[in-house]
Amino acid sequence: MALCKSCGKSLTLLNKATQDLCNTCVSSGHTKANSAAPRKAEVDAIMLTTETQLDGIRVTRRIEIVTAECAFGMNIFKDLFAGVRDIVGGRSEAVQQTLRDARRTALYELKKEAHAVGANAVIGVDLDYVELSAAGSMVLLVASGTAVIVEEKL
């Protein structure tokens, strides 16, 4: 299956025949020339917020909903010690660190998704954690929000 030269999404036959870019990238002004992998600094510059109304900042364009999904597994030793903590009480530093790592990864992936569609911010960010007990001890974290273009109010 053909992929967009800018963001990597699947292309329809019409897109493949005409431009090698998906409709989202075409409407965002992406070209094959600027389709290289984003630089870390560009991705880091994207603003994330749980708010939908921002003081001093105006949303000039709403682009689309973006999501990032991360599934993190707990190894057997973390599971063992977490089980002991369940019995005797206390905090599990190993589990807490895994959740922190999942959050950081999901938010960075969310920024990359926003960058791919030409946004400079993601508003209304929501984090949803799900335990996947059928797959062993795994945690699925889904980050979602609305990719937008913002500018400071004058």
Score class of each variant (00 low, 15 high):
A147N: 02
A94R: 15
N15Y: 11
T18L: 12
M74T: 08
I46M: 08
L3F: 14
K111P: 02
S6K: 02
I65V: 15
M47P: 14
A41W: 10
G124Y: 05
A71W: 11
M47L: 14
Y108E: 05
L127C: 04
L154S: 13
G56D: 04
D79P: 13
K32F: 02
A143H: 06
D128M: 15
T67V: 13
E113H: 09
R104N: 14
E51I: 09
H30N: 01
P38T: 02
T67H: 14
E151N: 05
I87S: 07
S137R: 13
V84Y: 04
R39H: 06
M1P: 03
M1D: 05
V148D: 03
T98I: 14
A114D: 01
A82T: 13
V43D: 00
A116K: 03
N34P: 01
I46G: 01
R103K: 14
A71P: 04
S10K: 07
G83Y: 01
M47K: 10
Y129E: 07
R58V: 11
R104L: 09
L14K: 06
E69S: 03
K112T: 08
V117F: 00
A17F: 06
I65C: 13
R91M: 04
N75D: 14
D20L: 04
R91A: 03
L110E: 08
N23K: 12
R58L: 12
I57W: 05
L54S: 03
V142M: 09
I149L: 06
V139C: 10
L21N: 00
L11A: 05
A36W: 01
D79V: 13
E131Y: 11
E152P: 04
K9E: 11
A71H: 13
E51R: 11
N23I: 04
C7H: 00
S10N: 08
L11N: 02
L140R: 07
V139Y: 10
